[in-house]
């Protein structure tokens, strides 16, 4: 009997969620603490470029700096999508944001839509700022209609492949102080991802580890979009493996979409005023 107005109410929640995502992006950009994260990749890249000036990819005359740019774009997408939502969910659970969403009709829908939009927008801002140092190597890149189409696709698929998994991971954390573990894990996964060090130069077992996670594939995808065709020779199998890339990211997306609602719902069910109060208590007495 509640079904007559339910689709309409859900749709209203989705639209409210879009407003939420927009507002939170606005607040985030004005917050120095967040801005550091948003600008981290462009700044890292600018520094990397400075050190790589004049160097070329071994055996070619291709600028090393141009080679690293797409890898960092891929890493930016993966890092933004994987670590961001997990850490905010843990924080939002403790300060009562999630409980507030639960107390509002269809509030969880608004919350999730808002989060996804906010992470998409802030990651996008970060990628756009990367254009500034990127101009220095633009001459070496392949920039045409295909580049932009592929980059847009990779960005969207990357978000869908990482945000749900991150939401699930964040729901599993017991306290917000455990988000440090997620950052540590992400850093470890970046090592065999082929972003800072060619994956083909790693021992084979590490190559397999790297290829199991989205970092490698998002980096590969971004390289396939922005580097000249000839650079594919440096990749595993001498190919961009575009199909495999979308395939693996697709599997991550499906796994995330299946897991996230289950884990999130289970976690949210346990939330109540007293759990929020307990978190506050712990925060006040221990300071974390």
């Amino acid at each position: 009997m509640t079904t007559t107005t339910q689709p309409e109410a859900r749709w209203a929640a989705v639209r409210a969620g879009l407003t939420r995502g927009w507002l939170e992006t606005k607040y985030s950009i004005k917050e120095p603490g967040d801005l550091v994260w948003i600008l981290a990749f462009p700044v890292i890249y600018a520094v990397v470029l400075l050190f790589m000036r004049g160097s070329t990819v071994p055996g070619t005359d291709f600028a090393l700096g141009a080679m690293v740019l797409p890898s960092l774009v891929g890493m930016g997408i993966a890092f933004g999508g994987l670590t961001g939502p997990a850490s905010t969910i843990a924080v939002d659970r403790e300060d009562g944001t999630l409980l507030r969403a639960k107390a509002t009709p269809n509030g969880m829908i608004g919350y999730l839509v808002g989060k996804i939009l906010m992470f998409a927008l802030t990651t996008l801002v970060s990628l756009i700022v990367m254009v500034i140092p990127g101009v220095m190597v633009a001459g070496d890149l392949r920039l045409d209609a295909r580049t932009w189409l592929l980059l847009t696709l990779i960005f969207l698929v990357g978000m869908v492949a990482t945000v749900p998994i991150s939401v699930a991971l964040g729901s599993l954390l017991k306290t917000s102080s455990q988000t440090g573990l997620l950052f540590l894990g992400s850093m470890l996964l970046i090592v065999p991802s082929g972003i800072f060090y060619p994956i083909t130069a790693l021992p084979e077992w590490l190559q397999w580890v790297g290829q199991a996670f989205p970092y490698y594939w998002l980096g590969l995808g971004a390289r396939s979009a922005m580097l000249p065709e000839s650079m594919a020779a440096a990749e595993i199998g001498g190919s961009w493996r575009t199909l495999e890339m979308f395939g693996v990211l697709g599997v991550w997306a499906v796994v995330g979409m299946v897991l996230a609602p289950i884990v999130l719902r289970r976690m949210a069910r346990r939330e109540s005023g007293s759990t929020v109060a307990a978190a506050r208590e712990r925060y006040m007495t221990k300071g974390y």
Partner: peptide, 20 residues
């Protein structure tokens, strides 16, 4: 959710949405 829409909840110790 339709039932939830007819309820108002004010709990102890909110710290949420601090930036808003």
């Amino acid at each position: 959710e339709a039932w939830r829409a007819r309820l108002g909840v004010v709990l102890q110790s909110w710290r949420d949405h601090g930036r808003w």
